[in-house]
């Protein structure tokens, strides 16, 4: 019998998880919040990034915004006199016979010149798998045209700065 003597055990050290419970909950909550923010935002803002043959093949809704990558065919740029934008023929990097007429409204970047690589974002107004909207196709001043007609709201031209063209 131990009698009067009582043994006091040191209190058991709780596990790391228990000690940091609040912190771990907080960390998980923050991570979840950021993850949620990322996923919903991607759903809301993502746009498809296509080449010209791809938009020809895909059903595009009349208001669906897409991004298209291609090159400006030399000598097809028609700048609007009031500086409000331009029209040009864009062709596919892999298959230059695949073309699209792009109408862009907005300030033209300096990098946008004959033969530059561009990315346009906007919607298809005629042509493609979804059929035509019945609008007459736009013919550019040098006579070139395409069944695909695109209205761009943004135009990104690669900065030829560091562009090794040779």
């Amino acid at each position: 019998m131990l009698g009067e003597q009582s043994i006091t055990l040191p209190p058991a050290r709780p596990s790391a998880f228990v000690r940091h419970q609040k912190l771990i909950v907080g960390v998980v909550l923050i991570a979840l919040a950021i993850g949620y923010l990322i996923t919903t935002s991607i759903q809301n803002t993502a746009v498809y990034y296509h080449t010209i043959p791809e938009i020809r093949a895909r059903q595009l809704g009349p208001t669906e915004m897409v991004r298209v990558n291609g090159w400006v065919r030399e000598g097809t740029i028609e700048k609007f006199a009031d500086g409000s934008g331009a029209r040009f023929l864009m062709y596919d990097a892999n298959d230059p016979s695949q073309t699209m007429v792009v109408t862009y409204k907005g300030l033209l970047p300096d990098t946008f010149v004959d033969g530059s690589e561009v990315v346009v974002e906007g919607k298809l107004v005629a042509g493609g798998a979804a059929g035509t909207t019945g609008r007459a196709p736009i013919v550019l001043p040098n006579g070139s045209t395409s069944d695909l007609q695109f209205e761009a709201s943004t135009l990104l031209a690669k900065c030829p700065s560091k562009f090794e063209a040779a």
Binding site: S41, I42, N44, T45, A46, V47, Y48, Y49, H50, R67, E121, T154
Partner: peptide, 8 residues
Amino acid sequence: KVTVGAPY
């Protein structure tokens, strides 16, 4: 290919 822009 899907891209996200400034709004994202």
